[in-house]
Write a protein that binds this DNA or RNA. Structure first.
Lengths: 340, 340
DNA sequence: CGGTATGATGTAATCGATTACAGAATGTAA
DNA sequence: TTACATTCTGTAATCGATTACATCATACCG
């Protein structure tokens, strides 16, 4: 293991000089610098970051907590975080919490252990009150989801789920649909709740029925199988809804799959709208109408807010930073056939 | 920031005693230990791991390089690594290389910077000769793919892709297929090459034609779109193949999608077999016949081999550790219709 | 030529833990 | 009570970097 002292000896200078060359900042005679560089290359020296971090009291590591990796939605966010972090010379420690509180908490201890300078939490459920403690003591940014209590205590990056849900319902209403169902999920995400509220409010203001038979919940993991179960229940209701708004693309696809098995044609007999606009949406016909979230940009924005906090930015950054969303119309939505 | 010295002062003991309590090992009088524990809790002390790592000359961090996150195939492996690492008190630093050599190299520098004790490379292309240098100097395990030159220089975890491809072709032949096509990819993965070789050899030994028109390559990223292009070329060949073996499930699904657009029924008019058995395979009918890899277990095995290397295991671990695979028959494969 | 400003480099303290070694406290036996 | 073993605890060196401060050499000026 090569240390700075060995490099110094090899170059015939002191450790301070080597350090100065490494950090570029200070005044070192060009000739000396060249010698040092040479010694560094010759010995294949790389600084021990544990030592540097100890001295500088930073780790240049960002912790990212994700509830799962398999959802391409998170992949895009992680890509945004990853690319920007490389540019800013930070490493990203990604932890798959599998939605488990315990795993998330143990990962967050990286912060108190000085192994990470800050954290980005993706998909934080509203029930995770323990997050408050970390928000108080360390730089933390929430992405995609949020906890109401923490809104003015840390930065939050998310689309306006309430507005998006209202827009979807308005879109369906304008197409002519009057029996609009929704597939939510059995989880504590703010997005789930906000989309439900948007759905309900827009229905009310449009004078449309908000029939409890037309709202079903999939499992917390948004799994295809649980989506099928929810869709099956919805499509067994009488009267049967003519449109389904699902809070995730996978759930929307599962609804299409069930509909087809029941002999229904999408979109002729049933309109389906998803959310997130992941790749699946254009893999099979009918291509899915969905709401696009700028995931990559949301990842970048989260990191950039976090870095501002880490660098002790004086401007207050707390609050919800809304990203824009976009309803993308594809093949799975159409006016209902007239039957009344 | 609470340090060990403050805890020591608060508990009225020396830093050595606190350290001994922290590390459990040494002899500390129960009463003293209790006081120290109390002080630790009171001050909410957590050791500074930079300092500890510097002193102990380890980081208890494992680096994992993945070419992408969006493929659920990698997600399962990462889950296996993650779960076992938690158990073994290691953190996992996951880096998405996006298949870029530069990104991978810069991530591997975590090793020389003492920020990681070892690395697991997922999906390492055969062309990545630079990996050799790291294999020589640090604990490294390759998972899923390998580089022939390194076979006896580091542990490798993978299924026997050659055997799997032969089994698939044998299966198709036994179903009665004689015109068997393959969708490979424009990449430097050993798996791609081995599957191609298995396909070719089994065809030969079965006395079946290995028609160049029946072998097409998708893009390196196994994308759905490039799979469609490859499938379209295959299905335009005359005579048209009656079965397609795709080296990834996504590519297989894209072939099904193209076939359906051409008015072909799968499996009646065309049999399609995939590889990896990811979740997509059972989302839409026809459910996909595919080869299951024990991804989760492969992740765990990789980590456990790596930890052995890190702990300086004296048994030689280099070489390919084959995981078992399994051909899972579903709806997308059937005997060809007789037309000759 | 002496004095001072400037630039280049070295010395040593420091970050917060671990741990070898020394030393104090306690117990035991004669 | 003394001698010595045993148990517990403290002192200080150490890991490998950074950096304040000291020092030395050189340049510049009158």
């Amino acid at each position: 293991m090569v240390t700075i002292a060995q490099v110094a000896a090899h170059a015939g200078v002191s450790v301070a000089t080597v350090s100065r060359v490494l950090n570029g900042s200070d005044t070192v005679k060009p000739d000396t610098a060249k010698q040092v560089m040479h010694a560094i290359e010759e010995l294949r020296y790389t600084p021990n970051l544990s030592a540097r971090n100890l001295r500088r009291n930073e780790s240049r590591v960002i912790l990212v907590l994700a509830p799962n990796f398999s959802n391409p939605y998170y992949s895009r966010i992680l890509a945004g975080i990853g690319d920007l972090s490389r540019e800013k010379a930070y490493s990203v420690l990604i932890c798959n919490t599998s939605g488990l509180t315990e795993t998330a908490q143990s990962a967050m201890q990286m912060l108190s252990k000085h192994l990470a300078d800050g954290a980005i939490m993706l998909g934080c459920p509203q029930s995770a009150e323990w997050v408050g403690e970390y928000v108080e003591r360390y730089p933390v940014v929430l992405c995609c989801e949020y906890i109401p209590k923490l809104v003015d205590r840390c930065p939050i990056v998310s689309v306006d789920n309430y507005a998006a849900a209202r827009q979807i319902v308005r879109y369906l209403r304008d197409l002519g649909h009057r029996r609009i169902a929704m597939i939510g999920a059995e989880n504590a995400y703010a997005s789930t709740q906000n989309r439900w509220e948007g759905y309900r409010d827009e229905l009310k203001e449009s004078g449309l029925a908000c029939n409890p038979d037309w709202y079903e919940k999939a499992d917390a993991d948004y799994s295809f199988a649980s989506g099928r179960r929810a869709a099956l229940r919805l499509l067994s209701a009488t009267p049967r809804p003519t449109a389904i708004f699902a809070i995730s693309d996978i759930l929307a696809l599962s609804a299409i799959s069930v509909a087809q098995e029941l002999g229904l044609n999408v979109p002729r007999d049933l309109t389906v709208v998803g959310f997130d606009d992941v790749d699946y949406t254009t893999m099979f016909h009918p291509f899915l109408t969905s709401v696009r979230q700028p995931c990559y940009e949301m990842g970048q924005k989260s990191l950039s807010l976090l870095l501002s906090k880490i660098q002790g930015c004086c401007v207050p950054l707390s609050g919800i930073h809304h990203s824009s969303f976009e309803l993308i119309e594809r093949e799975s939505s159409a006016p209902p056939i007239q039957m009344e």
